[in-house]
Design a protein around this nucleic acid. Structure first.
Length: 484
DNA sequence: ATGTCC
């Protein structure tokens, strides 16, 4: 079905889905891929979803698809869409179920030579200290007051509770807190789920990895981030808002679906259900989404503390935050109100990033002082067997993609297809052969995350680099993987 | 992603 879509080649890395393809489209689609990735993308219906998103009321610019794009709920994963702040809509499916799923990376001052004899020990301690698994409870149970504070203050709450240091907040997108969160817009069911889950990894593609700096593309930017030594050990955490954000998403997707007739929206897919940004319901979703985003930042802050404590336990470090500084934290499932130049005038828009990372260029006012000259760190986890990447945002993102780029390798197999194709035993053997030590809560879910189930992250990041959305800084190789 | 079906 995807191959019915007319694709116009723009250049080596970009393809247009012309607006005339479907009368519902208000704008064209723009998809970032080279020839090889486009072959994979044509294998599912993600391009149809890019075209569908172009029919959202008030969409501006292009409906965008990043090179890691694949099929998602209504919107593709790896999609970016901006809607007019006054006359446009917000679509909960355009943010996704795991609100503020995101990634953070910590540097260490350790070299692989200092760690290689303790790898098994490190894996055990991380697995012990980082709660994981489907439905898993977190590091602490929150009172109602504490839960409300987490929703309102995000990572700042966690730092005030002793999980980390104020410098961590400077190195977090939005300082780890979106203003304007509305706890009263969050259902009691979501409150109840959230109160048990703060400080937990969950399952699926979430992980904590210990990685080695494997290749350096940009020494100056790598040095600025404190990850400029080959063989240096870093830690990556990939996690979101757990059952809390999932419940918020579910509640508002249902609400939006029930309101489509009232607002006179006739969208090509009911999963695109949306709410006018300036409506009572639209503002309620935005306020609830911010609660979930803030919860996710507090969650990653607690998980990071677990990583620092693990390193302290093994390597005897006392000043943990100083020895393991946070390099940066980005979210990749979120809607943000931002300003861009569109057709020659500045416009305030709601940028839906679903499986897409903010990638602001050097000099952007939202960046901390430390990164003004190099641009925003952009963390791109690949798969557990091959590699992950650090990039920095480039000027092209402001001109082309509403300050956004890809968020990962992107699936090439569905979860069910991956489970059919890969046995958990052979996968564990393959990882061991590659020198990856793994601790996993549920072995039968692991196959869903097999490297074969993902595109080659190197190909994906090459496309955003060549298209000028972000620039390569370092490549990382996993040595320890902890998963749910 | 997810108390993977209220």
């Amino acid at each position: 079905m995807g191959n019915k879509i007319p694709l116009e080649r723009v250049d080596a890395n970009r393809w247009r889905i012309p607006r005339h393809y479907d009368k519902n489209m208000h704008v064209s689609g723009m998809v970032y891929a080279d020839d090889e990735l486009m072959e994979l993308i044509l294998g599912d219906n993600a391009l149809q979803q890019v075209a569908n998103v172009a029919s959202l009321p008030g969409i501006v610019g292009h409906s965008l698809g990043m090179p890691d794009i694949h099929w998602g709920y209504g919107f593709p994963v790896g999609g970016v869409a901006a809607t007019d702040a006054e006359s446009g809509v917000i679509s909960p499916g355009g943010i996704g179920f795991d609100i503020n799923c995101g990634v953070r990376l910590l540097a260490t001052d350790l070299h692989y030579e200092q760690v290689k004899g303790r790898v098994e020990n490190l894996a055990d301690v991380l697995f012990k200290r980082i709660p994981s698994g489907v439905g898993g409870d977190g590091m602490r149970v929150l009172s109602r007051d504490e839960m409300q504070s987490v929703m309102l203050q995000g990572a700042g709450w966690a730092v005030a509770e002793g999980y980390g240091v104020p410098e961590d907040l400077e190195m977090t997108e939005e300082q780890g807190c979106l203003q304007g969160a509305l706890p009263e817009a969050v259902s009691q069911q979501a409150w109840a789920r959230g109160r048990k889950q703060l400080g937990s990894l969950g399952s699926g593609n979430h992980f904590c990895e210990i990685q080695i700096v494997d290749h350096i593309y940009d020494q100056h930017a790598a040095d600025t981030m404190g990850i400029g030594r080959k063989g240096q050990i870093v830690a990556t955490i990939h996690c979101g808002s757990r059952g809390f954000g999932h419940q918020v998403a579910e509640d508002y997707i249902k609400l939006a679906e029930s309101k489509q007739k009232d607002y006179g929206f006739e969208l090509p897919d009911r999963q695109l259900a949306c709410l006018p940004l300036q409506s009572r319901e639209g503002q309620a979703y935005l306020g609830a989404m911010k609660c979930a985003a803030n919860f996710a930042w507090a969650n990653r802050q607690l998980l990071m503390d677990g990583v620092r404590t693990s390193f302290a336990e093994i390597f005897g470090r006392k000043a943990r935050a100083r020895d393991l500084p946070l390099v940066y934290d980005v979210c990749h499932n979120i809607a943000k109100m931002e300003e861009y130049e569109i057709d020659g005038e500045m416009k305030r828009v709601c940028v839906h990033r679903k499986g897409a990372t903010r990638a602001f260029p050097p000099g952007h006012p939202a960046l901390p002082e430390k990164y003004q000259a190099i641009g925003q760190p952009v963390l791109i986890p690949g798969d557990m067997g091959r590699y992950s990447f650090m990039l920095v945002g480039a000027q092209g993102s402001m001109e082309q993609s509403f300050g956004s780029c890809c968020h990962g390798a992107g699936r090439r197999m569905s979860r069910t297809a991956a489970k059919k194709a890969v046995g958990s035993k052979e996968l564990l053997e393959m990882l061991e052969k590659k020198g990856v030590t793994i601790r996993v809560h549920s072995k039968n879910l692991l196959a869903e995350e097999a490297p074969q189930a993902y595109k080659d992250a190197q190909q994906v990041v090459n496309v955003v680099h060549n298209a000028g959305l972000a620039s390569l800084v370092v490549r990382l190789k996993p040595i320890v993987v902890v998963k749910g």
